[in-house]
Amino acid sequence: MITPQIDRDKCDGCGLCIIVCWHHCLVLTDDGVVAIVEGADCDWCTQCEAVCVTEAITCPFEIVLG
């Protein structure tokens, strides 16, 4: 399952991505960084990427010819 990518070094644990995630895919771990727990529920809305000030979370698209 392809999921958004999280750069643990960049994540400042602000939790904004957790708030905007409709599908509750993200949690804040004990070490203060965000992790994906329900990757299968992620619909790639990219809101987590949009709100991340430190650019720690990214949702890259693969572009293919149909």
Binding site: C59, P60, V64
Partner: peptide, 20 residues
């Protein structure tokens, strides 16, 4: 950009975020 970076259906294309 989509046309330039599309994979050919065999090899996957470059992955780009909306920020990219």
């Amino acid at each position: 950009i989509l046309l330039d970076y599309a994979g050919d259906g065999v090899a996957s294309g470059t992955r780009l975020t909306q920020r990219d």
